[in-house]
Design a protein around this nucleic acid. Structure first.
Lengths: 202, 202
DNA sequence: TTCAATACAGACCAGTTGGTATATTAATGA
DNA sequence: TCATTAATATACCAACTGGTCTGTATTGAA
């Protein structure tokens, strides 16, 4: 090998940023190159085509977000419901900056390419479901100790959590601000509390 | 005036269909013309530019969906919580066909143009919030008779309902099927029931 | 019957798109 | 030290993009 592939990482980061702002189709290869400060030659050296870059960007998105959550403060909360509530407080806490800065690359991609690119669809589905899976252990525990053991599965609840978050992003984009997202996360917290609080209640 | 503007309606319907499949940026003006079976001349006779068409399509989307919900069977349910539950059952019932057929034009547009077109952002925001507003009366009533009068507003709950639906669409697109959407709507039904059921509970 | 306005068609244009071909640079291994 | 190969750059292309221009057909009002 020659020098390390600097451009590749810069291209993926630029792509993720631009897609979160404008969407995938509206982001041209040249846009990405310009934002990354590299040439088109570098782009097509690292990626066969634009879709291959999208696939790599999905992988990079998980690479970025996974450690962010793995080292987040909510991991120190007691397992089960408390940690899930702490997770949602963390999700609220990171609703900072412009809409494009706190919304999800994977969700944005899913909206655009669900009909047109099966590989990308699968890749972003993996982004979302693998993140949801990190919550399953706590859901499993919370369900076990729950007061009302309605027929619930941890996977189902973990995915519903992502549904609320993705929907919160859509409404936040529509409204142009994060307020609705914070409110909806509060509703989700209340739902999980009502559903999974152990033992008695007033 | 000469003959009625046939092409305009066909163009808007085609645009809505295509945007739900591919997104806005990926849908070219020619695509829309071809799908509508009219010429480019007709397109630019009716719309100043592509964005003007998007604005008109947002209005048309409300024109289509408003009567669909206004005449839906859930309107016959008793007011308050029962009607809200019936509403969500209706939303589940219309999760039929391909992903593009049951997902929301406004939500898709919001994801793509939130940073790039303020007028379109406002238009699709109106689509969503005006639909949410149709639920507010029932939420107001349900909150009044609710067992636990936590600080809730009807508007807030109505918007949270839309958050869950929009998020359900995103995950359905990512997964390539409606199952997750139905499950999340069930969670929302359970939440509203836990929160708003009047009087005592076991 | 004429006339003006609306509704539509189709050719055309300049800019942009994704992608290629080719050249240059810089490390690595023999 | 020198060939090889990865990494980056630049010029370029055909296809497509949003948008314009000009022309035509249909209609209602006078």
């Amino acid at each position: 090998m020659a020098r390390p592939p600097l451009a590749r990482a810069k291209l993926l980061d630029a792509a993720i940023t631009l897609v979160r702002q404008q969407g995938y189709a509206a982001t041209s290869v040249e846009d990405v190159c310009r934002a990354a400060g590299v040439s088109k030659g570098a782009f097509f050296h690292h990626f066969a085509d634009k879709d291959a870059m999208a696939l790599a960007a999905a992988a990079r998105w998980t690479e970025i977000t996974a450690p962010l959550f793995a080292s987040a403060p909510y991991q120190d909360a007691p397992p089960g419901l408390p940690r899930l509530i702490a997770y949602l407080d963390f999700r609220k806490a990171i609703l900072k900056g412009s809409t494009a800065e706190f919304t999800c690359f994977a969700g944005t991609m899913a909206q655009e390419i669900h009909c047109t690119s099966e590989p990308i669809r699968a890749a972003v589905e993996h982004c979302i479901s693998s993140h949801a899976a990190t919550l399953e252990a706590d859901f499993t525990l919370a369900i076990l100790t729950a007061r009302r053991p309605e027929a619930l599965t941890a996977q189902d609840l973990a995915l519903h959590t992502q549904v609320v978050l993705q929907g919160a992003f859509v409404l936040a984009k529509a409204q142009g601000g994060p307020e609705i997202a914070a409110q909806s996360i509060d509703h989700l917290k209340r739902y999980l509390t009502l559903l999974l609080t152990p033992e008695t209640l007033p």
